[in-house]
Nucleic acid binder design. Structure first.
Lengths: 198, 198
DNA sequence: TGTCAACTTGACATCGTGTCAAGTCAATTG
DNA sequence: CAATTGACTTGACACGATGTCAAGTTGACA
């Protein structure tokens, strides 16, 4: 029945997400066990591991109201405000999706589907950067050194999951420090230099 | 005989490095074929894949005179000079080691040895950042907002292989642009803001 | 001539993903 | 009530990659 089917499906996704949060390697059999079904039954719901992970990502977007949080930055009037709001929203979004993002990133080399899924997500994230940069440019608050594309590239790289990983996990920064410093760094890079030097 | 042994060993390492440059996945059998020996013979020279990759990294350090290039930045007198020199040296070093770095990074999750090897390399690279930051601080050229540790964390993250990967490969920046912009970005972040704002 | 080191071939274990076949069990439907 | 259908189970198996093991071959050197 579709009812029970859906129920099992979300149980699988929840189990997968929970396991992925732990940071250790997660096999199909682990997910099955955690979801309380047989390994083979996973394949009744998802054709392969990549699809399962991608579905888990989407499910995560649903339950944590990703769109809403990122949309909030859209109400900003000034570019600088929007930049801050976007960094705040995205920066605090990363830890929530990091588990599944990591798994997807690891599959990238071996699985074309996983690679595409990740690329799409990063393209979506880039749009947020682009919008902030555009607004900065409109306000004449963009460092004249950079075109909008180049500035977007920089911001996009600055806010990458990998960058978060390094500062937060390798360097041991707190989440608050990460967000706060990314705001400062982004401004230092993207806004025109105050003294007119450079 | 040790002579021929060494010869085969370096042939393996050269073959491995050449294959890793291509960016595609590289199996033990690929390396063996490229080196002109049987797959099993690889294990006469290296106990496992991780060790082979680590040896390849070291070999690469030898043939491209890594130490010399990075040491050049040590002759700088001022912190700002040293920062530029280090970014120049490291930034141009990344593309040379990227192939093997990528393979090592991919093994990280599954192989403790690979993880340690990578961590060590990044620790060494961090020392370069630390030295540049220290010299900036000595010259009173470090943004007062940051302690030396924090500034080192930022520079280290800024110059990460992953960051290079994003700007160079995903965004399509030229190597020259990458190095040039990293210098600008590092200065914008690490030096005191010229107008005293912020 | 005999030994030894470097290498070969071929078989095999292990692990994880993914597939296939046959069967259980409960709810739905004619 | 009987037949069907859908969700799931168990068990076996193929595949690709790493790594191991055993039994040769080959060439150099003593």
């Amino acid at each position: 029945m579709s009812r029970k089917n859906e129920h099992t499906r979300t149980r699988i996704l929840k189990a997968a997400l929970a396991l992925l949060e732990s940071g250790t390697a997660v096999r199909m059999s682990d997910i099955a066990r955690a979801a309380g079904i047989s390994r083979q039954a996973l394949y009744l719901h998802f054709p392969n591991r990549a699809d399962l992970l991608i579905a888990a990502t989407r499910y995560l977007d649903e339950i944590s109201d990703t769109d809403t949080k990122l949309a909030a930055s859209r109400s900003a009037r000034r570019g600088t405000e929007r930049l801050d709001a976007y960094i705040e929203a995205w920066g605090n979004h990363i830890p929530e999706v990091y588990g599944v993002a990591r798994a997807l990133l690891a599959m990238r080399d071996s699985d074309a589907e996983a690679a595409t899924a990740w690329t799409n997500r990063m393209a979506a994230m880039r749009e947020g950067c682009e919008a902030a940069v555009w607004m900065l440019a409109r306000d004449r608050d963009l460092n004249p050194r950079y075109g909008e594309d180049q500035a977007t590239d920089l911001l996009w790289t600055l806010l990458s999951v990998r960058g978060w990983e390094l500062l937060r996990l390798e360097c041991g920064w707190s989440q608050e420090a990460y967000v706060a410093e990314m705001k400062v760094v982004a401004r230092a890079v993207l806004l025109p230099p105050p003294g007119g030097r450079d």
